[in-house]
Simulated scan of single mutants.
Amino acid sequence: MRTTLTLDDDVADAVRERARLLDQPFKRVVNEALRRGLGPAASVERPVYRVKPHRSALRTGVDPLRLNQLNDEIDAAASLGETGG
């Protein structure tokens, strides 16, 4: 089928470069790229992510959700010139 297609300059440049590297006609490179892009989504391999849990180094009784609050309190005290102890 013959059709007219307007490509953005960067896309046309990329296709020309690919055609040159593969030593294939421009038309073939465009058709292959469209076939790959329009193929079934199921054929796309998705990476598998695994979470490896580990033991926390926090001591019993330390609330990790309050660590930011403690840091804010230390910063506020430092800005007011207060010292601990």
Rank of each mutant, 00 (worst) to 15 (best):
A14L: 09
P64W: 01
E17N: 08
R55Q: 10
R59N: 02
R36C: 00
A78I: 02
N71T: 13
E73N: 02
V51T: 15
R36P: 00
A42P: 03
E73Q: 05
S43V: 08
L21E: 14
L58K: 03
R2F: 05
V11F: 15
E17H: 06
L7G: 08
A77Q: 15
L38D: 06
R18D: 02
P64T: 05
V44W: 02
A14S: 14
P47E: 11
T3K: 12
R46S: 06
E73R: 04
L67N: 05
Y49H: 14
R20Y: 02
E32N: 12
L80R: 15
N31T: 05
S56R: 11
V62S: 01
V62D: 04
Q24C: 12
A41R: 07
D75F: 06
A76H: 13
L58Y: 01
A77H: 14
K52R: 10
P53F: 02
V11Y: 15
V51S: 13
V15A: 14
E82Q: 08
S43L: 09
L65Q: 12
S43G: 10
K27F: 04
A41V: 08
R55C: 05
P25T: 14
A42G: 09
R28G: 09
P40H: 05
L67A: 09
P53R: 06
G81H: 08
V51C: 06
A19M: 01
T3A: 13
A12Y: 00
R2D: 11
D9C: 05
E45Q: 09
T60C: 07
A77R: 15
N68R: 11
A57W: 05
L80A: 15
A76G: 13
P64C: 09
D63E: 13
G37S: 12
A12S: 10
L21G: 13
S43P: 00
R36M: 01
V29T: 14
T4V: 09
V44Y: 04
R28T: 13
L22D: 13
G61R: 00
L7Y: 03
P40G: 11
P64S: 02
T3V: 13
G37L: 07
R50F: 03
D23P: 01
R66M: 04
R28E: 14
R16P: 00
V30A: 05
Y49C: 11
E73F: 00
A76D: 15
E32P: 04
A12D: 14
R20E: 12
V62M: 03
E73P: 00
E32V: 10
D9V: 10
P40V: 01
P53W: 01
E82Y: 04
E17S: 12
R46C: 03
A78C: 04
A77W: 13
A33M: 01
S43A: 11
I74Q: 09
Q24H: 09
R28F: 06
M1C: 01
L38P: 04
V15C: 10
R55K: 09
R59D: 06
E73W: 00
A19N: 04
F26I: 06
E82F: 02
L65K: 12
V29G: 14
G39C: 08
S43E: 14
S56P: 06
D13W: 04
R46E: 09
G39K: 13
L5Y: 02
V51I: 15
L21A: 12
R46F: 01
R59Y: 01
S56L: 11
Q24R: 14
T60W: 07
R46K: 08
A19W: 00
L67R: 06
R50H: 07
S79Y: 07
L70N: 07
D8C: 04
L7Q: 07
V44K: 10
R36V: 01
P53C: 02
